[in-house]
Structures are given as structure tokens and as C-alpha cells.
Design a protein around this nucleic acid. Structure first.
Length: 459
RNA sequence: GGCCCCAUCGUCUAGUGGCCUAGGACACCACCCUCUCAAGGUGGAGGCACGGGUUCGAAUCCCGUUGGGGCUGCCA
């Protein structure tokens, strides 16, 4: 194939955008960009019962968020039914398909009776039923072999006897996925079909149809290994967090998500983990894609995301976090930046600035503060000093150090602990002195007073 | 059940017959740094599923076993 490659991503409107679809889209996009080809978006909405406009909108926004721009489309299969109809007419004419009126229960019953494998048994093959409405259409699978060569996995053999007569049109007249898929790939001159491994067995049927329709030279195929959960099962909506929009909403950066997704099944080479888009485009090879599946590990995603977060100019970070929280935390943004793994986590680290009062866990308080008698004197010493010192990080630090010394708590690390818990409600967080400076003298003092009375509920 | 695919540390991977007493990253452990937590630094534990071949030589090639996965819809 000497002309510019044409590839496509063909999601169906299921209500969310699966990370696996995102990975497939990315690999298609990388291939197209590197080869100077076209990346085409086609919505596979032949199942009219499931279609919803907002689902389609979700697909477009997810693709945009990931930065995977398409060159053509979106095309909608629901608007191309005339193409499928004429293809079906052709198949009827040539006798490549036949009508079938077996109810699904009947097919199942016969399979059970037969004791053999489940699936259709060709019952209507030679009944000569008219292809009238109310009857589905099945492809008459010929004897022979339907093997093909896959760009990532090599030869994929198949004996046609292991293929049942699959449906190409529903009894309500709608085309089935496999038919629409083939017709559109031919019509759109798709040169490389890059999709998930769960489609390999569809490919044999695809090719049979392709030939029956006289489309000529086959496209190339590349089947990508699947993404699994930690149980090594295909990532599924039911058990797993699979929606790209969920990761977006938690504050993962699209560039980090793309980087992580690229690492699943492909590698930029030894000792590299963080890769720019340009490097991905220039280094990507379909032949380098692994054929074994990969587990989607959110901890690694977090780590990649942290790297991208820390690499951001701090003012840009503040800007991009606007959707999660207001900019009140900006003065300590640089300190928060290296501690947050997602934009959403920034709030956890800075919520003491946003809440009217800290939420203090009783058990935590008892363990970290109440058990140490000296901390009472420490806190009141801190309070006294806080009311007098200049309100800047350095003075705040000095006040805590001095109060600690007077209370017999020499180590600063120890002395800051009760102050931190009383004021922020958490045992850990960004550096305390700067945090208190931003919080302000009055709110800080009030919280320490509250801590003191927590020590002595009566007084 | 049938058909097909896959197999390097817990996870993602490098490795395409000698450079491998198998390298990196995440996660984990220890230490250093340090106002906590991170970040950073140093060190550590941890893997070629198993069994046969082929070869002077196998993580790399072949066969088998085991394990895992996918498909098997009038969903896509």
C-alpha cells in the first residue's frame, strides 16, 4: 500500500468512553500522525435502541480531552443505512446470505439437544425462505480457510468450519455491526484496521464478507492486546473504573493519561517512561506492540501524573486546578505541587484553607496530642506567641520552636505535630509555617484555642 | 464444551542466540535529607511458568504441559 494510510476509531455510544477505546484511539492516531495518514472518527450506532445524543457528545469530548484530533468525521452509521441496504441487496442477489426465522430460544434448544457447541446450526440454510421483513439474514459461510496476517501477532489461522453462519441483518431490517463495519471500511478506504484483540475472531467473518462484496484488496490488520483489571479480566464497566471521564474528573492530566496509555503494550525503548507526544509519534511502530495483554495499574498512572504535575509551571497548575478549587491556595502552590498526585488531591492537601473549621479525628487527636502532657503547655505557649509575633513563616516557626523549648519539647518535628493537627485537622500536609501564614493569624489562633479546650472540655 | 491467542520481578516493560551472575519504571523495605508528609539521593528484596529438544551456547528457536485470556448475540 503506497498511498497515505487511513485509519479509524469506531466507538459505539455506550454512555461513557472506555480507557481501552482511548488506548486504541491513541495507537491509531499515533500511526496516522507518523505516517502522514488520516485518522477518521466513525460512530458505530447501528443499534438504534441504544443511541443517545449525550453519549455521542461524551465520545467527542473525551477524544478532544486526550488531544486526539481527527481528520474526518464524525461519520454516523445511523445516517448511512442506504449503503448497508445496497450491500445487503448485493449479498441477497448473489446468494451469499439467506433468510432465517429461527427464534433464539429455538437455536439454543437445538444446540443443547445436539450436545455440541452452542451457536447456530445452519437450520435455514437451504429452506429458501424469502428475505422478507421479520426474518434476519445470515451469511452462508463457505468451506475453506480464512486466515490472515496480523501486524502485531502474525498469522491468525481459521478453518471456516469453526465459523457459524453469522447474522448480517436483524429481523427489523437494521444492519448488524459486522456488515456496517465492512461496508464502511471499504467505503472510507480504510487501509489499516487497528482495534482491540477482542475483534480477532470477527476479522475472519469480516474478510468473508469483504470478498463476498467484491471489495478487492484487504486492508491490513493490527489487533492490540487487551487491557485487564488486577484480576486479569477484560476491563469492564461493571467491576472496574473504565471511563476516561472519571479519570479526568479526578484530576488526571490528559497528557499524563496519554503517556501512561502509550506505555501499555508499547515501549519507547529501554529506560524511558516519560515520553513527549512528538517522541511517541516518531518512535511508534505497530510491529513493536506487544501481543500480551496488560493490566491497567492506577498507581503507575498516579506516578506518571505526579511527574507531569510537578513539571508544570506553578501558575499554570493553579490555573488548571480552577475546576477543582479556587485559588486561595496559590501562595503555597509550589509546596503543594510536589505532594499532589492529581488535581483533585490538591483539595485534600489544602482543605484547611477552605473549611470553616478543621475536621479532627478523635482517635488521631488522642494518639498524637492528648497522650503527651507537655503538649498542653506547648499549645498555650504557641497561642501566646502567635498573638504577638510578626505574621510570617519565619516568625511562626520561631514561635513554635520557642514554645516547644519552654514546654520541654526540643525537637521541632515533635513540636509542630500538635499545632498541625489542631489547625489543619491532619497529621500530614504541606510545610506548616507557610500554611499558617496563608491561613492567617486569627483563624490559626482560634483553632489553637479550640484545640486547647478540646484538651479540657470544661474550661 | 469448541475455536483462537498469550506467557521476563506483585505491575508496566527492555531484551529478537553469546554484551544477561537478565536492565529500567511503579509499588514495597531501609538509610540519608528534613518542621510532618512528599520530592530528591543511596542501598535492598523481587522475575525469564514447567518439561523436553535444537545449538559450542538459549529469556531469546521448536514441541509438549501448565496457567491466563479472548471469542463463541437479531451488542459493538
Amino acid at each position: 500500500m503506497s498511498s497515505a494510510p487511513r485509519v479509524r476509531i469506531a466507538p459505539s455510544p455506550t454512555g461513557y468512553f472506555h480507557v481501552g477505546t482511548g488506548r486504541t484511539a491513541l495507537f491509531n492516531w499515533l500511526f496516522a500522525r507518523q505516517q502522514g495518514g488520516s485518522f477518521i472518527l466513525r460512530i458505530e450506532d447501528t443499534d438504534t435502541a441504544r443511541n443517545r445524543d449525550e453519549h455521542i457528545d461524551g465520545i467527542l469530548r473525551a477524544l478532544e480531552w486526550l488531544g486526539l484530533d481527527w481528520d474526518e468525521g464524525p461519520y454516523y452509521q445511523s445516517q448511512r443505512s442506504h449503503l448497508y441496504s445496497s450491500a445487503i441487496d448485493l449479498l441477497i442477489e448473489s446468494g451469499a446470505v439467506y433468510a432465517c426465522d429461527c427464534p433464539p430460544e429455538e437455536i439454543q434448544r437445538r444446540a443443547k439437544e445436539r450436545g455440541g457447541p452452542p451457536g447456530y446450526d445452519g437450520f435455514c440454510r437451504d429452506r429458501g425462505l424469502e428475505p422478507s421483513s421479520g426474518r434476519m439474514l445470515r451469511f452462508r459461510v463457505p468451506a475453506g480457510e480464512s486466515g490472515f496476517t496480523d501486524l502485531v501477532r502474525g498469522e491468525v489461522p481459521k478453518n471456516n468450519k469453526d465459523l457459524e453462519d453469522f447474522g448480517v441483518r436483524k429481523s427489523n431490517g437494521d444492519p448488524l455491526f459486522i456488515l456496517a463495519n465492512v461496508v464502511d471500511d471499504a467505503d472510507m478506504s480504510i487501509t489499516h484496521v487497528i482495534r482491540g484483540e477482542d475483534h480477532v475472531s470477527n476479522t475472519h467473518k469480516y474478510l468473508l464478507l469483504w470478498d463476498a462484496l467484491g471489495y478487492g484488496e484487504w486492508p491490513e490488520f493490527a489487533h492490540l492486546p487487551l487491557l485487564y483489571n488486577d484480576q486479569r479480566k477484560k476491563l469492564s464497566k461493571r467491576r472496574d473504573k473504565v471511563a476516561v471521564e472519571d479519570y479526568r474528573d479526578e484530576g488526571y492530566l490528559p497528557e499524563a493519561m496519554v503517556n501512561y496509555l502509550a506505555l501499555l503494550g508499547w515501549s519507547p525503548g529501554a529506560e524511558r517512561e516519560i515520553v513527549t507526544r512528538e517522541e511517541m509519534i516518531s518512535g511508534f511502530r505497530l510491529s513493536d506492540v506487544k501481543s500480551a495483554g496488560a493490566i491497567f495499574d492506577e498507581r503507575k498512572l498516579q506516578s506518571v501524573n505526579s511527574e507531569y504535575l510537578r513539571a508544570l509551571p506553578t501558575d499554570e497548575l493553579v490555573e488548571r486546578a480552577q475546576a477543582w478549587l479556587l485559588g486561595r491556595w496559590a501562595p503555597i502552590a509550589g509546596l503543594v505541587q510536589e505532594r499532589a498526585r492529581t488535581l483533585g488531591e490538591i483539595y485534600t492537601l489544602t482543605d484547611f484553607l477552605y473549611r470553616p473549621d478543621p475536621v479532627i479525628d478523635d482517635a488521631e487527636w488522642d494518639k498524637a496530642v492528648a497522650k503527651t502532657p507537655a503538649f498542653e503547655a506547648l499549645l498555650s505557649g504557641v497561642l501566646t506567641r502567635f498573638e504577638q509575633v510578626e505574621w510570617d513563616a519565619e516568625s511562626i516557626q520561631q514561635a513554635v520552636v520557642d514554645a516547644g523549648r519552654d514546654a520541654g519539647v526540643e525537637q521541632v518535628g515533635k513540636a509542630q505535630a500538635p499545632v498541625r493537627l489542631a489547625v489543619t485537622g491532619r497529621p500530614v500536609g504541606p510545610p506548616l509555617w507557610q500554611s499558617l501564614e496563608v491561613l492567617g493569624r486569627d483563624r490559626t489562633a482560634a483553632r489553637i484555642r479550640a484545640g486547647l479546650s478540646r484538651l479540657h472540655p470544661g474550661s
